[in-house]
């Protein structure tokens, strides 16, 4: 490793010492993994019976169709609606009129500060209280709650993205006589979207993980599909491992896509970062 902030390039004695540390740490890690595996074996978690459903086509199909597909569907719907919400409120927060700016700021800050699970419970009992059947009611509660939360986060992303477009762009547009709406829709938004696409996809990872919060209401998708499986086979540990692995793989794929788009669209720059809730951001009303 070349010289970094933390330490200089190591000399031969240090390299040897680090090798010793590596070996000791490696042995400790292997021992830890071995211990966990032994406990898994000793408590019978590695028996074939407990893993059988994940090798049976009928269950694989259920996991992929009723689980993964529904989860993805919820995440996609939520993100698409959140983008709409985010554009409206993000642009609203940049408005010249205080009576537009303030309510937008309030809505965005509120939904960023409130736990998603709470929004979900509220939507489930109040907003969609009389929806039938239960799966549709859960679906829309999850989607609406995620839309509100992710939309509020994306509103911040959009605002930051629009502010990240070089100022000269807007000035030039005004100079050639464009109106305010034209400057926003023709000049600023198209450029901002390019900067924001990776951030939107990263937000999809968040939304996908948060669909599992539907567990708090009736539950739907991957987290829900786990329940009948571990109830039937009493294989809680394998089920949790398999379902978690699916989430992780899908999220890693999404992250890879985000990074690829990042390179294609914005070059090597970092993903747009958004301040936390209630932070004093320059330009905030």
């Amino acid at each position: 490793m070349s010289a970094g902030v933390l330490f200089d390039a190591p000399g031969p004695a240090t390299v040897a010492r680090h090798r010793t540390y590596s070996i000791v740490a490696g042995i400790a890690l292997v021992a830890g993994v071995a211990f966990v595996l032994w406990r898994l074996y000793a408590t019978g978690q590695l028996e074939y019976d407990k893993w059988e459903p994940f090798l049976t086509p009928r269950y694989i199909e259920a996991i992929l169709v009723d689980g993964l597909m529904v989860t993805l569907q919820m995440a996609f719907s939520a993100v698409i609606l959140a983008v709409v919400f985010g554009v409206l409120f993000g642009v609203g927060k940049l408005s010249d009129h205080a009576w537009v700016r303030w309510p937008c700021w309030l809505v965005v800050e509120f939904f960023r500060a409130v736990p998603v699970i709470m929004l979900m419970i509220f939507c489930f009992y109040t907003v969609f209280g009389d929806f039938d059947p239960l799966s549709r009611r859960t679906y829309w509660s999850v989607v609406l709650a995620l839309t509100l939360y992710n939309g509020a986060v994306l509103a911040e992303v959009f605002r930051a993205g629009i502010n990240a477009v070089p100022r000269g762009q807007a000035e030039a547009a005004y100079a050639i006589g464009m109106r305010k709406t034209q400057v926003m829709t023709i000049v600023l938004l198209p450029q901002a979207v390019k900067i924001m696409i990776p951030a939107i996809i990263s937000q999809m990872v968040v939304a996908l993980k948060d669909t599992s919060l539907g567990y708090a209401v009736a539950g739907l998708g991957l987290t829900r599909i786990a329940k009948p499986i571990y109830q039937q086979f009493a294989n809680h540990v394998p089920t949790i491992i398999v379902i978690t692995a699916i989430y992780v793989i899908v999220n890693l794929l999404l992250t890879a896509i985000a990074m690829w788009l990042q390179r294609r669209l914005v070059g090597e720059k970092k993903v747009l970062e958004v301040g936390m809730v209630g932070e004093q951001v320059p330009g905030r009303p």
Binding site: V205, K209, T211, S212, T223, Y230, I240, I243, T244, Y247
Partner: peptide
Amino acid sequence: NTPLVMIFLFFQL
């Protein structure tokens, strides 16, 4: 990349 609910489920079940 793991949903927090799954970690909670793991510690409960």
